[in-house]
């Protein structure tokens, strides 16, 4: 550690560019959007201060609440889809053999694909006329199960959740594998001596030992699911009839399709508040269980 007095000027000079850039593009926008939210503005012409009206309108709009509910469906799909799948895979794939590494890489692969490509591919998989899903259903004689997976409001939220689950399992698998490999080998020996093997060992030793990691992953699932936008935007754009609207697509459509910049800013601010609340609550809940 360098503490000499001479270093002060260097420290300031070296930090300045990144701090300026970071504040201007990451921190300041959050406050600006809260401020813009008090105005009515169509992108051109004069702005008109309307106080809290935008915020009130959003909170009274049933579509806003549907979007929030859809976001929560994605959160639930991640917690009940990604976590169990990643956990089972990690329990079965925690060696560093070539085969285990291959399967882990395969599961991770979708992470590096562009979310647009993911959305487009799955859009085709779900396509009502030639999609793979309907093709398979027809081939096995379940013709009456076929449907427009992305247009039927009864199922389309679950349909869009599947690609999101598929897309983001990789990191959770790697984290669970790391946690399992971190269990000291003395514990394996002890288990052997005490006769804890197979399912007994899994339930009484392995799962409790990685319980903290499971909690971390659940918190990450909640934070990550709130970021969903690209895939849904590409697959459905939030439609039809706003049935797959997420908070982010709702914000986008209101701002850039019907040019209500003030309203979009208010919704952006609500997104920040909701995210912080959910991340905060999930962390408190997870910590509470520990003590």
């Amino acid at each position: 550690m360098i503490t000499s007095m001479r270093s002060g000027r260097f420290v300031a000079l070296a930090l300045l560019p990144s701090l300026l850039l970071y504040c201007f593009f990451v921190i300041v926008p959050v406050f600006w959007s809260a401020y813009y939210g008090f105005f009515e503005w169509s992108g051109v012409g004069a702005t008109k201060g309307i106080g809290l009206q935008n915020y009130a309108e959003a909170l009274q709009d049933p579509v806003f609440w549907r979007a929030l509910k859809n976001n929560l469906i994605i959160v639930a799909a991640s917690i009940f889809g990604q976590v169990p799948i990643a956990l089972v895979l990690a329990i079965l794939l925690n060696k560093n053999s070539l085969f285990h590494r291959f399967v882990r890489s395969a599961v991770f692969m979708p992470m590096v694909l562009s979310t647009v490509v993911v959305g487009l591919i799955w859009g085709y998989i779900y396509h009502p006329q030639f999609g793979l899903v309907n093709f398979v259903l027809e081939a096995v004689g379940l013709d009456n199960w076929t449907r427009g997976w992305l247009s039927d409001p009864d199922v389309n939220m679950y349909a869009v959740a599947v690609p999101i689950i598929w897309n983001f399992i990789g990191p959770y698998l790697i984290m669970f594998v790391a946690a399992i490999q971190n269990i000291p080998s003395e514990i394996d020996d002890a288990c052997l001596i005490d006769g804890a093997i197979g399912r007994k060992k899994l339930l009484l030793v392995t799962l409790p030992m990685i319980w903290n990691m499971i909690k971390v992953v659940i918190v990450l699932c909640i934070a990550g699911s709130l970021k969903a936008f690209d895939q849904v935007f590409v697959m459905t754009g939030g439609g039809p009839a706003q049935s797959t609207e997420l908070l982010a697509t709702y914000m986008y459509n209101n701002t850039f399709n019907i040019y209500r910049y003030g309203y979009g800013s208010a919704v952006s601010t609500l997104i920040v508040i909701i995210s912080m609340l959910m991340i905060g609550v999930s962390q408190v809940l997870m910590r509470g269980k520990e003590s």
Binding site: V26, I27, K227, Y252, S268, S275
Partner: peptide, 23 residues
């Protein structure tokens, strides 16, 4: 300062689209 940089990771990217567009 480290805290401020870490805080940025919590800000949902999509919530900055509108203000950044205007700015």
């Amino acid at each position: 300062l480290s805290g401020v940089f870490l805080l940025g990771m919590l800000i949902p990217i999509h919530s900055t689209l509108v203000p950044l567009f205007i700015m």
